[in-house]
Amino acid sequence: MIIVRLRGGLGNQMFQYAMGRRIANDLGTSLKLDLTSLLKTYKSQMVTNRDYQLDIFNLEPIFLIQPDLLIKLDKLGLNFVSQFIKGIKLLGIKKYREKTFTVEDWIVENPKDNFLYSGYWQSEKYFKSAEDLLRKDFQFKDILSPQAQDIFDKIKSENAVCVHMRRGDYVDNPVFNSGSLDYFTSAANYINEHTEKPHFFVFSDDPEWCLKNVKFEQDFTIVDYKTNKIKFKEDLQLMSSCEHFVMSASSFSWWAVWLSNKEGNIVVAPKPWFLNSENDVKDLVSKRWIRL
C-alpha cells in the first residue's frame, strides 16, 4: 500500500496524486490518499485553507480516512493528526518526508512500498512513466457551463494565448513570485513576435484587478464570467485549451500547460520562480520554456 499526503491547492494535489499513482502502478499495489493535513483548519495567515479538489476529475480515489469524518474531527478540535500518525506506525507504515525541491532519484528508480509519502513532488520526473494513465485520470468530469463554453468557443476560434496571473495569497508574499506587469507585457511581446495574430486570454483569481491594470498592445480578453459550477475547474479546462502560454510561477499554470499536451507551442515562464529561495527548479521548469 502506498499512502500520499495531500496538501495545498489543486495544482499541488495533482502533483502529489500523480507521484503516488505512478509508484502504486509500478509496484502493483493500492494508492490511498491521506487528507489529514489538507482538511485541518489552519489559523495562520501564511496558510491558505484548502479542500479536496481532485473530485473535478474522473479518477477514483481511495481515502485513508473519509473526508466527512476528518472534517467532523477537526471541528471537534481533536488532535487527529498526531493520533493518525501513531496509528500508521502501528500498521508498519513508514513515513517519508520530501527533503529537497529537486528530484530524489530513489523515488523515481526504486520506490518503496508500505510508505506514507509527504511532500510536494513538483517534477514530471516523478510520474513521467505513467503519463498515459494520468491523462485518463485527469479528464474533467463535467461539461462546461454555458458561460465557460462561450469562452471556450472564442478560444478555439483564435490563436489563443493563456496568460495566467496568480495573485491572491501570492501578493506581498516574500517567497512566491506573482509576476510584475512588466514580466507579463514582455512575455506578450515575445509571443507576438514569434506567432501569428495571437489573442491573449487573461485568467486570474483576481479578474477585477486585471480589468483595471492589464493593458496589452495586442488583442486580449480578461476572462471574467459567472458560473454555477466550480470556477477553478472551469478556468483550468479553459486555460489548457489554449495554444500558447504565459505562466505564473504556479503549479496551477504548470498543469494547464501539461494538460494542453501541445508539441511546439510557446511557453513563457517567470525567472525567478521563487522570490527568496535557494530552491533549484531545474526539475520543475522545462528546458524548452522561455524564461523572462
Rank of each mutant, 00 (worst) to 15 (best):
Y183Q: 02
S277L: 03
S157V: 08
A18P: 03
D132T: 11
D34C: 03
R50S: 12
S157C: 10
M247Y: 06
Y225I: 06
L59F: 09
K226T: 15
K287S: 15
P67Q: 01
E243H: 14
R291P: 11
H164C: 06
S204D: 01
G168K: 06
A249K: 00
D205Q: 00
V108Y: 08
T48M: 11
Q13P: 09
G11Q: 03
D26L: 14
Q218L: 11
D235P: 06
K99N: 13
K86N: 14
S157M: 12
V246Q: 05
N265C: 15
K271V: 05
A188H: 02
D55N: 10
T41V: 14
M1S: 13
R50K: 14
V246M: 08
K229C: 09
R97G: 05
V202I: 15
Q83S: 13
G179Q: 01
V103E: 11
E193I: 02
Q237A: 13
F138S: 06
D153E: 14
S37N: 11
F200A: 09
M239P: 00
W209T: 04
Y183D: 01
V108M: 06
E208R: 07
A256H: 06
F63Q: 04
K226W: 08
S277P: 02
E104G: 10
Y190I: 05
M19W: 01
L70N: 00
L69F: 08
D182Y: 12
G92W: 08
L31W: 09
F200S: 07
E278F: 08
F63G: 04
K141H: 01
V257F: 06
Y117F: 06
V285Q: 04
V103S: 12
F138N: 05
P146V: 04
T100M: 12
K154G: 01
H164T: 09
N192R: 10
S186V: 10
R288P: 03
S129D: 15
D219C: 07
K94E: 15
A188K: 00
L292H: 11
L181K: 07
R288E: 15
E234V: 07
F152C: 04
N213C: 02
D26H: 12
V281T: 07
N189H: 03
E104A: 13
K43H: 15
P270M: 10
K43P: 04
S186Y: 12
K226F: 12
P207E: 07
K215R: 15
K136G: 05
L133R: 07
K154I: 05
D235A: 08
K32W: 05
E131L: 09
L116V: 08
V161T: 13
K32P: 03
N261V: 12
K287G: 15
E109V: 13
K72R: 13
S204K: 03
K43Y: 15
G11Y: 02
N265F: 06
E158C: 09
D205G: 00
T221S: 08
N261L: 10
D219Q: 10
L78Y: 14
P272C: 10
K112A: 10
H244E: 10
Y170V: 00
P146Q: 03
S253K: 02
L70A: 02
L64S: 00
K125H: 10
K141V: 01
